[in-house]
Amino acid sequence: DSCIQFTRHASDVLLNLNRLRSRDVLTDVTILVNRQPFRAHKTVLMACSGLFYSIFTDSLKCNLNAISLDPKVDPDGFAILLGFMYTSRLSLRESSIVAVMNTAVYLQMDHVVDTCHRFIQSSDRS
């Protein structure tokens, strides 16, 4: 009994999904953040965010092709988190970290919230 584990497979799939997003191929939803549109794949959004999981598992909402987020959500913070969903890389800058963390709380991305919190704490100490 043996198997071959392709160790890059998850990241290769994610890279291709991000290419599909950038080319708007099979994207199936527009997320509006303060009227700024972001195209994405519902499956990726719901795999990464508790909020989107709740929305797209709701039979009344799962077929929506446009969703407006709370107007308090920062579009730049959302853009950073959407990039993270498709790359596994989270851009952390002092200027944007609070917006990213607040947006991650809203999107129910708990591990990202914890990471932002630790980053802020370590910045405060240094």
């Binding site: 043996s2 198997c3 290769d12 290419r19 080319r23």
Partner: peptide, 20 residues
């Protein structure tokens, strides 16, 4: 009996180009 796993470090699928 243990399972033997061989790790393949190379690309696992084709790469979708940025643009056609």
């Amino acid at each position: 009996q243990g399972v033997t796993t061989i790790k393949e470090m190379g690309r696992s699928i084709h790469e979708i180009p940025r643009q056609d």
